[in-house]
Design a protein around this nucleic acid. Sequence first.
DNA 1: CTCAAATGATTCGAGCCCTGAATGATTCGA
DNA 2: TCGAATCATTCAGGGCTCGAATCATTTGAG
Lengths: 150, 150
Amino acid sequence: MSAVNPPSLTSSLSFRLGTLGTVATTRFTAALEERGLKPKHVALLAALDAGAASSQLELAQAMGVAPSLVVSMADQLQALGAVARERDPADRRRQMLALTEDGRALLHECAAQAHAIDAELAAALSPAERESLRRALGVLAREAGLPVEE
Amino acid sequence: MSAVNPPSLTSSLSFRLGTLGTVATTRFTAALEERGLKPKHVALLAALDAGAASSQLELAQAMGVAPSLVVSMADQLQALGAVARERDPADRRRQMLALTEDGRALLHECAAQAHAIDAELAAALSPAERESLRRALGVLAREAGLPVEE
DNA sequence: CTCAAATGATTCGAGCCCTGAATGATTCGA
DNA sequence: TCGAATCATTCAGGGCTCGAATCATTTGAG
């Protein structure tokens, strides 16, 4: 009975992260639907808010997506009045994006939605457990080169 | 300075689960590529191994995907010799799937891959921290109705 | 100063993944 | 016994993303 179990797939961190990530993203997507947004749009807003980048190309690199995808997302966010877009005077090839006031407010609402989903997902955890889970994931995210604010 | 930070998106559990889930899945997908498998194929093998279901419809429900998707996955896994497929004698509409010996071996190899990725992802955590992270995620997964073996 | 090469943005076509509708086979129930 | 229900299967379509091609602008070599 001291034999080590063969490592099962569902006991792995990777599998649990993958499946829970899907659940979290699905719920977040549903919550965003009424605003006409997708998670990536919100990620773009968050990247701008964090000052991670300002030109579209830099944004694409920071987010790990194709530059062409940033174009269409920026189009939509601009149409919603969430971002302002203007050419860099110093290099007119670059499109500079900036959060508007409305954009910042929108981002905060979306962040609040995310935290509401957190509460559902982690309902079975004590506040202390939830906090240390959040922190541990922050370490992994930072290690993986993902955006992490504290 | 005692003011509470406005809840940022990237500090949320949901966001971290979503992004880390993508990273984990991407790496797992890459590791699986040489075998011609996708994560969903492995999830199907795991569901069979766990005895979660045996008919294709039950499998689809257990996995949360369309029955038609199970058809094509079962086709491929059968072609690889990982699953055996036969009509239920008691109800010949039902297709029963079962893991073959090769299928079980394949699943174990894939699980080992997942655990190798775990080690990369959680390299910055102590063994104890890693274990409590794994356990906390197990609680959330169980709560969310996801497959969890211990 | 000039022009070819490099760079950023944009458009657009292609590929992948998944779903839902339509169909066929089989079983169930009045 | 036959119409309704159920399971499997096929297939066309939609959503999401990328990469190639194109246009505007800048840079650097001469």
